[in-house]
């Protein structure tokens, strides 16, 4: 959008800033984002540690090929289900593939499954939620009923139907999880939008003829961001776990690729004679899920003390 120089609007912007500061003060949010992060770092060591752990996992996923001498689908039929040893630090699986290697490559898939559909579901949720809350009326009713349908439809079933329709594969998982998860985001964003719309400065802006799009992107969206960051850190682990549920039902990542969920599900067959096969990826999932949860809790404490119910 070309930048218009409108003295009136510029005036208005300073007014807005003052309004917003007042609002922020009222909400007890007088400090900046940086201040909040510093507070998080000093008050909540666990959250910081969790953040570091997540970064380590991401680095491991990115540099997987450099960290292991094996390929993720390199079989050694003579060394099936071998226990951990110097050659295979975490043992081998049912086809003699190195478990550590599959864990590292699986991290790529699992982290992607955690992040990508969550980003998409949040985009959909934010757009629909803001439109719903801001426009109201019939549009609101339609979008919210749509959200009701998605929320009341058992999510695993919905994901299954989508996966059956699209066929297995990682893109299908992204789509299935994005479709099943947007509704709850939309609801949160809608209610935030509703309450922000009622604030004086938004009403003032509207009465002054500021374009709706400008109000939405300049004033409403930025105020939703803290809740969105928190929602994000909580939705990522749930997406990772959804992938493991799909694996249990025999759908998901295409063999011979690996993901943590798939590894746990394939490995659980050998729980009693080669427990490392399922326990190792389970532990990986557990660490990542806990890390995201603790990080999310920590962020919530500093960013958004009002968002508790998700």
């Amino acid at each position: 959008m070309p930048k218009k120089s409108n003295p009136l609007q510029d005036d208005f912007r300073t007014e807005m800033a003052a309004e917003r500061e007042a609002l922020a003060a009222q909400l007890g949010e007088s400090d900046t984002f940086g201040d909040k992060m510093r507070r998080l770092a000093s008050d909540n060591k666990l959250a910081v540690f969790s953040g570091i752990l997540i970064v380590i996992f991401i680095l491991m996923a990115v540099f997987a090929p450099l960290l292991t001498p094996y390929d993720f689908d390199e079989m050694d039929l003579m060394a099936r289900l071998a226990p951990p040893s110097a050659k295979h630090l975490l043992g081998t699986d049912e086809l003699g593939r190195d478990v550590l290697t599959r864990l590292l490559y699986g991290a790529r898939v699992s982290l992607a499954v955690g992040v990508i559909p969550t980003v998409f579901s949040m985009l959909i949720g934010v757009v629909l939620g803001m439109v719903s809350g801001y426009v109201g009326g019939m549009t609101d009713a339609v979008i919210m009923r749509l959200a009701d349908v998605v929320l009341s439809f058992p999510s695993l079933l919905l994901a299954m139907v989508i996966m059956y329709t699209l066929g297995d594969g990682i893109t299908s998982i992204f789509i299935a999880l994005a479709i099943t998860n947007w509704a709850s985001v939309a609801r949160v964003v809608r209610s935030e939008t509703l309450s922000l719309r009622e604030t004086e400065y938004v009403e003032a802006a509207r009465s002054m003829g500021v374009k709706d799009m400008v109000i939405i992107f300049r004033h409403i969206l930025p105020n939703c961001i803290p809740s969105l960051i928190v929602l994000f850190t909580l939705n990522v682990p749930s997406a990772i776990l959804s992938e493991s549920s799909l694996s249990f039902l025999g759908i998901g990542v295409q063999l011979p690729k690996s993901s943590w969920g798939l590894m746990v599900n394939m490995g659980r067959t050998y729980l009693y004679n080669a427990p490392w096969l399922s326990l190792v990826p389970s532990a990986a999932i557990m660490l990542v899920v806990l890390a995201f949860n603790f990080l999310g809790d920590g962020l919530r404490d500093v960013l958004d003390p009002h968002l508790k119910n998700s």
């Binding site: 689908d73 079989m75 086809l95 066929g167 297995d168 759908i251 063999l255 011979p256």
Partner: peptide, 20 residues
């Protein structure tokens, strides 16, 4: 998965595709 690997060894690409 083994068949896929054995075919790969002679230069044939067989993509495993799962259907319900």
């Amino acid at each position: 998965q083994i068949v896929q690997q054995q075919l790969a060894a002679v230069g044939i690409t067989a993509e495993i595709k799962t259907y319900d």
